[in-house]
Design a protein around this nucleic acid. Structure first.
Lengths: 347, 347
DNA sequence: CTTTAGCACTCCTTAGACTCGAGTGCTAAC
DNA sequence: GTTAGCACTCGAGTCTAAGGAGTGCTAAAG
């Protein structure tokens, strides 16, 4: 990719245009570049370079007599081979840490807080994908008799995630009986991931068919039911949607509607975050790279977060393609690390 | 209020204008009313009536040569003394019931589903306030040892709501020990509301100071900690925000931003829903009646929902003041009743 | 061969002028 | 009390002209 932009000067011009465009949001002309960016050449020269960059597909003109705007490819090249990613300053780190007021009272709350942090420090939308239950490690199961024929199962994972399911059963079971089941299961299932738990339960059920142990049988059946429900699903927390309204490129209502529709539907965003979960480190999707239909002018910057060795989920920032990557990339990176640390230390 | 609009004809004109305005969204003129609403009088007569209604503050003109728009007061009068609230048709009821696919796997999910139902049947935004924990009845408490010094408390209410808190303790406690505590507490706290539980615990702690029972002491301390955390808070589920974008009155970006800001902040909406919880039946807030700053053109239609005798929360529809009250009022009413029934029957 | 000044050209943006039409309020007649 | 007639108001839409930002090309200079 680097070779695409041969000369040092071409690279500096591209950088200048992108910086100018990011801060201004309007097409940038040759004069502005020549003046403000310490390139000691005339606008005419800049124009020649611009024409070259346009031919390479890194810039384009909305119309003949307008300045240039970077294309997605242009941004890609910039991010991959020009942008130097700075570390977050100590002051910034400190400010981020401080904005997590209080301790970790609930994992859910911590994740929600994180999406708020991402949004307020980026001035864009912050997003956090919740852990997929099936990937987490089993910690505890409890059954609660709600009333005759109705039982609630509460599942706790090592990472402190709680999940409950309510379901109907044939015939009543007393709370004492249910407690016996859970004690039994808690012993059996220690240290398995929920995914493993599921297959383990199936194995045991097969064995049990031969042994005819009634206690065992019921316990397995109940937990089986509890695990059927959506342990593969994730949710997302999105905060700061309205920050996006401040970007002039979304002023047009039609654009806006599409973006907010995507926020409303969530499933596409979940898919995207899910995909970038396994790829370690910071991921960047520029415009149509995210393959979310109708989202040409939106970029995602994401990073997975963990708890100890478990990869739990992804967090990130959603903003216009024209966002301040140099600030937001380290922000996402640091926030992911900080969250991982908090999850590990407190749980 | 009824006296405000003396003549039968005046009332019919007001109704006609409101109906026309609701369906069209643009100021309505005298011709349209004279033609379409079976009032057998000329436009000039209508104009006279309109002038009277305007003097009463029920209508206003955006500018001299425009038609009339109902004021908030006009809508209020219409809703209070003209509108006859129809029952929902059986077909509609059936369609609503059917849109709850599957059973009640989690209360949380049920509430979220409900806000979706409200949104899709009203074509506006649907909103559901989650139960305030402190009002619900205690069912069960569990402690889980996450690791040394870290304990999770899981609280289950009779209505099937689960709430967890993680906190640090001085000195390690084994899981067996924790189980003892929870068995003890589960016996003691049956059938109290969480609010009562809180005071009860304080009482017991005072007594205990005298008795020096170590088991009791620790158990009380832990549960006390768990209850300190946000049992007074509620959350809301909002669905169908983007439906509001289809209303021409919100086409202007500035308007939109204000509304979406309110959605983002939530606390004001929570307050409003909270307030309308105690007032039984359907509540209607037109425009500035809701006292949400900057929300002149938005109406709320809300109704509390219950589980048995407990009032749990509020649900409703948020839309433009210009919404189809005759359809949405019974929708909100029916949905609240249906949700209450489901909560009661399955839990 | 590269850089630059000069210049004609393009095309968006803005503002003003104008028309059109919906709707009103008033007056006078029924 | 109701209605027809009419002058008047005012926003929405259309058209035109001016202004200006920015370009591409050419030709000269380094």
């Amino acid at each position: 990719m680097k070779q695409l932009v041969r000369g040092e000067r071409a690279r500096r011009v591209l950088e200048a245009i992108i910086l100018e465009y990011i801060s201004g949001g309007v097409p940038v002309g040759s004069r502005a570049i020549a003046k403000r960016h310490g390139l000691d050449v005339s606008p005419a020269t800049i124009r020649n370079v611009m024409a070259d960059l346009e031919e390479l597909g890194l810039l384009y003109q909305p119309h003949t007599s307008a300045g240039r705007i970077p294309t997605e490819l242009g941004l890609r090249v910039y991010i991959d081979s020009i942008l130097k990613i700075k570390q977050l300053s100590n002051a910034d780190r400190e400010r981020i840490r401080r904005s997590y007021k209080g301790g970790v009272a609930r994992v859910e709350g911590l994740l929600k807080e994180t999406s708020k942090v991402l949004s307020s420090f980026s001035n864009q939308a912050g997003v956090v994908l919740t852990p997929r239950l099936s990937l987490t490690v089993f910690k505890r199961i409890e059954f609660v008799r709600l009333r005759a024929n109705m039982v609630m199962t509460i599942l706790v994972s090592q990472a402190g995630i709680v999940h409950n399911t309510i379901f109907e059963i044939d015939g009543d079971i007393s709370q004492e009986e249910l407690d016996k089941y859970s004690r039994y299961l808690n012993d059996m299932l220690q240290d398995l991931t929920l995914h493993q738990v599921k297959t383990r339960l199936l194995d045991e059920m097969k064995k049990e068919k031969v042994l005819f142990d009634r206690l065992l049988s019921k316990a397995l059946e109940l937990s089986q039911k509890a695990l059927q429900e959506n342990i593969e699903d994730s949710e997302i927390y999105i905060e700061g949607r309205t920050n996006l309204l401040d970007n002039p490129e979304f002023a047009d209502v039609e654009q806006m509607r599409r973006i907010f529709n995507a926020f409303e539907e969530k499933s596409k965003i979940i898919d995207l975050l899910d995909k970038s979960m396994s790829a370690g480190g910071v991921n960047i999707f520029i415009g149509s790279e995210s393959e979310l239909l109708d989202m040409e002018s939106v970029s995602f910057i994401t990073s997975p977060y963990t708890s100890g060795d478990e990869i739990l989920g992804t967090l990130g920032v959603i903003g216009p393609t024209r966002m301040d990557y140099s600030r937001i990339i380290p922000l996402v990176d640091y926030t992911a690390k900080l969250l991982s640390k908090m999850l590990k230390e407190t749980l």
